Amino acid sequence: MVRILLAMPQGLLRGALRYVLSTHPDMDVIAERDAVDATIEAVRSDAPDVTVLDLELLNGPGRDPAGAARAAHSELPDSKILVLVDPRRPGVGAHIASGPPTIGFLAQTASPERVVDAVRRLAAGEPVVDADLLVAALMPSSPLTDRELHVLEVAALGTPVKEIARTLSLSPGTVRNHLSRIIAKTGARNRIEAIHLAKEKGWI
Rank of each mutant, 00 (worst) to 15 (best):
M1V: 15
L5A: 03
L6W: 10
L6K: 05
L6G: 10
A7T: 02
M8K: 05
Q10N: 13
L12S: 12
R14I: 03
L17D: 06
V20Q: 10
H24C: 04
P25S: 12
M27I: 13
D28G: 03
E32W: 03
E32L: 08
R33M: 15
A35C: 12
V36R: 10
A38E: 13
T39D: 09
I40T: 07
V43I: 14
R44I: 08
S45H: 06
S45C: 01
A47N: 14
P48A: 12
P48F: 10
D49F: 10
E56A: 14
G60C: 03
G60W: 09
P61K: 10
P61N: 11
G62L: 08
R63D: 04
D64P: 00
D64F: 02
D64Q: 09
A66V: 12
G67V: 00
A68H: 06
A72V: 10
S74T: 11
E75K: 14
L76T: 05
L76Q: 02
P77I: 08
S79F: 10
S79G: 05
I81A: 09
V83F: 13
V85I: 13
P87T: 07
P87N: 05
R88M: 15
V92F: 07
V92R: 09
I96P: 01
I96D: 04
A97G: 06
I103W: 05
I103S: 07
G104Q: 08
G104N: 12
A107P: 02
Q108K: 14
T109D: 15
A110E: 04
S111F: 10
P112S: 10
E113Y: 11
L122R: 11
A123F: 06
E126N: 07
V128T: 05
V129L: 03
V129F: 01
V129Y: 05
D130W: 10
A131R: 14
A131Q: 11
L134Q: 12
L134S: 12
S141Q: 15
P143Y: 11
T145S: 15
L149C: 00
H150C: 09
V151G: 05
L152H: 04
E153T: 13
V154P: 02
G158D: 09
T159I: 12
E163M: 14
I164H: 07
I164Q: 06
R166F: 13
R166Q: 14
R166I: 01
T167V: 15
T167N: 12
L170S: 09
G173V: 08
T174P: 00
N177Q: 08
H178E: 10
L179C: 02
S180D: 09
S180L: 12
I182H: 06
I182M: 00
I183C: 03
A184L: 11
K185Q: 13
K185C: 06
T186S: 14
T186A: 13
G187K: 01
A188T: 01
R189P: 03
R191G: 01
R191F: 01
R191S: 08
I192W: 11
I192K: 15
A194R: 04
A194V: 06
I195C: 01
I195Y: 01
I195G: 02
I195W: 05
L197V: 09
K199V: 12
E200H: 09
K201T: 02
I204D: 02
